[in-house]
Amino acid sequence: MTDTTPTREKPIVALFATCLVDLFRPNVGLATVRLLEQAGFAVEVPQQQTCCGQPAYNSGDDDRAAALARQVIRQFERYSYVVVPSGSCAGTIITHYPELLRGDKEWQDAAYRLAERTWELTRFLTEVSGQQTEVPAEYAGRITYHDSCSGLRELNIRQQPRTLLSAVKGLELVEMEERDTCCGFGGTFCIKYPEISERMVSNKVEAIRQTGAETLLAGDLGCLMNMAGRMQRLNVPVRAYHVAEVLAGMTDVPAIGEEENR
């Protein structure tokens, strides 16, 4: 990183990395930072962040989910922009926090304020930063893109990643059949109903395989881990990366679930 401009002159973006990225794939977080910096923002990563609370919320444990929502609001409310490299975690903050905190006017207002300033990464890059045509990355090969459900249906993320990817040199996008059908991840669903989840992800893998793509991209690490894990179990030779990694030109690390010294 050669950029030495003092950060205080640039608008600041807070990164909500998500718990999965934090725990499993730091490279997605780093790629997100690089993309935001390239777009002219200074990035801060509030250190106390843990999880958006989705596991509790989707399990019906509203009190615990609300506690996490308040924690996230407190940590991020001072920022004008909060960017999340995940449609489902961004969706939780944007569409579900206000709902979750509806019992408490003050907190609900705070939730609405945060919701207004929170962005899914690809949407932020195309709609706010306006840098979508100057993506300098290169990625040689044929990719296919999975539309993760929450991003797609809660936040309308569909065209944004494709717009960004169309500027990546050497990259060819082949759409799969039923690209907007759920991959069977569903958070705790895939563990509670493993057989149903297996069928769903197998269907997905078949659709991916049919495209002849060498690489699978998506905007949510949970779905990616699910699909990559199934492809590896079935020996389907398709590599999986988060879209941020390709956009940032940071695919020099092993793909998701791949051996380290490949």
Partner: peptide
């Protein structure tokens, strides 16, 4: 049971950051 589990990297994002 039905898929491999990607292993985490050596360190968390927060640590790397």
């Amino acid at each position: 049971g039905s898929r491999d589990l990607p292993a985490p990297s050596r360190r968390t994002f927060q640590q790397v950051w």
